[in-house]
């Protein structure tokens, strides 16, 4: 199905204006005020229609999604099975001072997971991104962690508890000295009455 009319040309009697012009005008927030457009009934009707169209566009996907029947998401299970096999090892930190005949490394992924688990175990806190930054080769490593706090949890106390637990646990697990430990609260979680479902 094709349209014989040339695109972009006057498609209605819009008092000399094109639909494209009206859309651009709408995109600009109807400023600066255009008396030619605003005084034309045809243009005003078209603008109203375009605004309705745009408002409906915004809701379209949400409504499609809500209307769709619940379905088993086999594709999701397939994806999750596959990615767990390749779980981002990151850097490999060698354990120093091992006797001859034994070589060992701890992956950055393992240490990130550990810090993440420590944070999750602190009441009112959820761990986000964990970044290790070596200072010099074989030297201290800085740690930067982003966290979310549950609304109502005391900020200073909760972060302090997290720091305490990380600094208590990490020296026995990280094969390097910890330098700085920076904790950044990135957002606040609203937990509804009765907890999460």
């Amino acid at each position: 199905m094709t349209d014989a009319r040339p695109p972009g040309g006057p498609v209605e009697d819009l008092d000399g204006h094109t639909l494209d012009e009206l859309v651009d005008y709408l995109d600009r927030g109807r400023t600066p005020y255009d008396p030619g457009i605003e005084s034309s009934p045809a243009c005003r009707i078209a603008l109203a229609g375009l605004e309705r169209l745009r408002a409906r566009a915004a809701d379209l996907l949400e409504e499609d999604a809500a209307a769709a029947p619940a379905r088993p998401e086999h594709w999701m299970t397939a994806v999750l099975d596959r990615i767990s096999l390749e779980s981002r090892p990151g850097r490999r930190f060698a354990l120093p001072d091992l006797p001859v005949g034994t070589d060992a490394v701890v992956t950055e992924g393992a240490l990130r997971g550990l810090v993440r688990a420590v944070g999750d175990s602190v009441p009112g806190l959820l761990t986000g991104r964990v970044r290790f930054t070596p200072q010099e080769p074989g030297g201290a490593v800085d740690l930067a962690v982003e966290v979310s706090l549950v609304f109502g949890a005391p900020v200073d106390g909760t972060v302090a508890e997290f720091r305490r637990r990380v600094l208590a646990l990490l020296p026995d697990q990280a094969p390097f000295p910890i330098g700085r430990l920076d904790v950044r609260v990135r957002d606040v979680l609203e937990v509804p009455e009765g907890g999460a479902s």
Partner: peptide, 25 residues
Amino acid sequence: LAAAAAARRALDRDDALVVLEVASI
């Protein structure tokens, strides 16, 4: 250290080189 020792005992080879990666803690 304990894992390396256990591996050597299981292999009955004191001279075995044991290489470990700790991928999750």
